[in-house]
Simulated scan of single mutants.
Amino acid sequence: MRDRMKAIQARPGNPEGIDIGEFGQTLCLYSETMPWGQFNAVKGLKGSDIGYLDDILRFYRERERKPQLEIVPSGVDQTLLKALTDRGFYSSAVHTSMYIDLAVLEQLEDKRFSAKRDEMEPDMILESTEKGFESNVIISALEEDQLPLYATIHCRGTGLPDDGIPSVLANNSVLYNRPGWSFYLASVDGQPAAVGVMYRHGAVASLTFAATLPEFRKLGLQGLLLEQRLRAAREQGCKLVVGQCAFLSQSHRNMERAGMKIGYIRSTWTQR
């Protein structure tokens, strides 16, 4: 998110009103035009940064925004949690962080990839007959001229209105050629159906986003996009892949089927 927000901030005139604050080990993200929690999140807050807590809250109060605090259990203690409660915060949601050691992926590969699929890299052509649906599914790297298509699937696959497509397009176009970012497209019988995004930093890759158009759901497309990104991460020299999902969601089940395991359950704290 730090890299994503810096890229959006660097757009001419900073049209999304991005601001980034750092207090100790804590990262504070803010967007004037995007009020959603992920763009106004406090990340990395630990008990050792409790002395910065009021500064962090002031950062958002001055910008008239209530932040979303993302709390990782290994980094906090009772003192910090009590301090959050005293300041009007409550635990409002939980999120699952998943991971896989890519050495384990190599051991599992024969079970998940057929020899036919291996021969077809970098694209995968597969047959799907789930629920009587017969089709050719192609997973490929997204071309730069397909970014408007990506933005459309991003919005419609997540329930955002179409008037958000231009903003999503602009904010992801700045990532396309930025080091570390990779975009993938799943097509069914030649029709664009789903997308997935990955970000690599050093030897770690993060599964940052995925969405499927409603009419193409329940065909296993996200599982295939997940497999492709895991393979790409290994080819790029990564040792670890991480991702986030709602607890026991379909994404959670897809990640477990791909060999990923729970790293921790993150709690989201919201101000009353």
Rank of each mutant, 00 (worst) to 15 (best):
Q250D: 14
K111T: 04
A203L: 12
R61Q: 13
G164N: 04
P35I: 01
P192F: 05
Y90D: 06
G13S: 01
I165W: 09
Q25D: 14
D49M: 08
T212R: 06
K66C: 08
T85W: 06
A233I: 01
R217G: 01
M260R: 11
R58M: 08
F133S: 12
F183H: 13
K111V: 12
R58L: 14
R217E: 04
L126W: 06
I100Y: 05
V137A: 05
P179G: 10
L126G: 02
L226K: 07
I20R: 02
A258R: 10
L45Q: 06
I18L: 01
K218N: 12
A211Y: 03
L224G: 02
K82Y: 00
I71V: 14
I165N: 05
L240I: 05
A83C: 10
M198C: 07
I56D: 12
C28S: 09
A186K: 11
W269C: 07
D19K: 01
V174F: 06
A10G: 03
F59L: 08
S91H: 02
H252F: 15
M120Y: 10
E143N: 15
P15Y: 05
T33L: 01
L160E: 04
G47D: 10
Q250M: 09
R257G: 09
F89D: 08
Q25N: 05
E70F: 00
R272P: 01
T96D: 11
T270Q: 13
R65T: 12
S140P: 02
P35H: 08
E127C: 05
H252A: 14
S128R: 13
E62C: 00
Q78S: 13
V137W: 02
S114C: 09
A93G: 00
Y90Q: 05
T208K: 06
L27V: 06
A170N: 09
E235L: 14
R272L: 10
R61Y: 07
L102W: 02
I125K: 07
K116V: 10
G196A: 14
A193Y: 05
M120H: 09
T129V: 13
K46G: 08
L80N: 03
L169G: 00
L185N: 09
A186T: 05
A246H: 11
L213M: 11
S114Y: 07
F113D: 07
H95D: 07
G47Q: 12
I138L: 03
A193G: 04
S31A: 14
D49T: 11
A7I: 04
D55Y: 10
P67C: 02
P35F: 00
V42A: 11
N40Y: 06
K111P: 00
K6E: 09
D145W: 11
S206M: 14
R4H: 15
Q68K: 04
F216Q: 09
M1V: 04
Y176W: 13
P161W: 05
L160A: 15
V42P: 07
V174C: 15
Q78I: 01
N40A: 04
I100W: 02
V42I: 09
Q236L: 11
R234N: 13
K82H: 03
M5I: 01
G17P: 03
E127A: 07
D55W: 08
A83S: 14
E32G: 00
E130D: 08
L221F: 02
N171S: 11
E130N: 07
